[in-house]
C-alpha cells in the first residue's frame, strides 16, 4: 500500500512526522481530506483541527494558519503553530478565550482588536480540538 508521508513543521520545530493513511486538514476554503496519490496542491490553512488517520487510529492536532504542500506521496504542513490535542491545556485556553472576549466587548480599537480576535480564534480552536478528543472513545 502506498504511503503518505506527513510532516508538520513550525518555525520552532518539527511537531509531527509519520507515514499515515489519510490527513484531514483545515484549508482556508474548508476542510479537505487527502489520500495517497493526490494531485500536487498548495493551499493556505485556517485555524482548525488537523486529523491524521493511521491503521484504524486517529490522532488530532490544532494548527494555526500557514499552508500545506501536497504531493502524491507527501503532505507537508508549514504552520505558525501546531499542538497535539493531548498537549492542549483546556483551562488556559478557556482563560484566554474569556480574556479575548472581554477585550473585544470593551470596545474595538485598532491593533488590539485584531490581536484579540486572533487570540479568540486560537482559543476556540484549542477548545474544540481538545473537546473532540475527549468525546472519542
Amino acid at each position: 500500500m502506498p504511503g503518505l508521508r506527513l510532516e508538520i513543521i513550525t518555525p520552532e520545530r518539527v511537531v509531527h512526522q509519520d507515514d499515515v493513511d489519510m490527513v484531514i486538514a483545515p484549508g482556508s476554503e474548508g476542510y479537505l481530506g487527502i489520500l495517497p496519490h493526490h494531485a500536487p496542491l498548495l493551499t493556505a490553512l485556517g485555524h482548525g483541527e488537523l486529523r491524521v488517520k493511521k491503521g484504524g487510529t486517529e490522532t488530532s492536532l490544532a494548527v494555526f494558519g500557514g499552508f500545506m504542500d501536497i504531493g502524491p506521496d507527501h503532505v507537508v504542513v508549514l504552520t505558525d503553530a501546531a499542538e497535539h490535542a493531548e498537549e492542549i491545556d483546556e483551562q488556559r485556553a478557556e482563560a484566554a478565550r474569556a480574556r479575548a472576549k472581554a477585550a473585544l466587548e470593551a470596545g474595538p480599537v485598532g491593533v488590539d482588536e485584531q490581536r484579540a480576535r486572533a487570540e479568540l480564534s486560537r482559543a476556540i480552536t484549542r477548545l474544540r480540538v481538545s473537546e473532540r478528543r475527549r468525546r472519542r472513545p
Binding site: S28, E29, A39, L41, L42, T43, A44, G66, F67
Partner: peptide, 26 residues
Amino acid sequence: KQYIFEPDPETVLRQILPRLIEVAVY
C-alpha cells in the same frame, strides 16, 4: 510540477512570500 492552488496562486504566494522573509531572518 502542475500545482493546484487553493484558493488561487496569488493568494497563496502573497501569504508564503512574507513568511519566507520572516523565517529567514528568524
